[in-house]
Amino acid sequence: MTSGTPVVFVVDDDASVLKGLKRLLCSAGFTSETFASATEFLDRYDQNAAGCVILDLAMPDFDGLQMQKALTERGSVLPIIFLTGHGDIATSVQAMKAGAVDFLTKPVTDEALFAAVHTAIQRCQALYRAREETAIIRCRVATLTPREREVLTHLLSGKLNKQIAADLGTVEHTIKVHRARVMQKMQARTFAALVRFAERAGIAATPPAES
């Protein structure tokens, strides 16, 4: 579902800074899109695109932190690199806490910028990959029968087949068959992998029964 090339979105109210950054990114092979204001960006940006946002902290309409919040609210995972003319510590801490990848002070050198952009794009791509994997796992989970799901939750709590059979009021052999089915449907070769997949899909273990 992700588009192939990552895009760097640059938001700054200063036209010459925008132009310069676009050229610099271009010179390093990055694809970039520029926006003169936060509003314009929020209205126009490609929500499916992977990449990152380079955001000027001081904007007439939104300040950088407000925009970060707006993006999060829209469910965007685009990492943000803040640019500022005068980085004060309080603002940068706040920005980093809210998930900024980096906080760069103008004027920024190409190495610092590219490093930050690389990191951000990688993080974005990682995020997208993880999201895809989760989606696949969820699809696999969807193929499980209710009984198999039940067995899965019991398995996740680390019970033995015998115990599970006792809990579900059936025989150990039946549990074994279910277990093999679950492993097969979830495409988990080891039990450890199954546990990891289940976690990604947000399936919780059945709490151990009180004896």
Partner: peptide, 18 residues
């Protein structure tokens, strides 16, 4: 500082791009 850094930013990024 912002007023000065804006053009400096422009200069630096343009120069390095070049």
């Amino acid at each position: 500082a912002h007023e000065i850094n804006q053009p400096l930013m422009g200069i630096l990024s343009n120069a390095q791009a070049a």
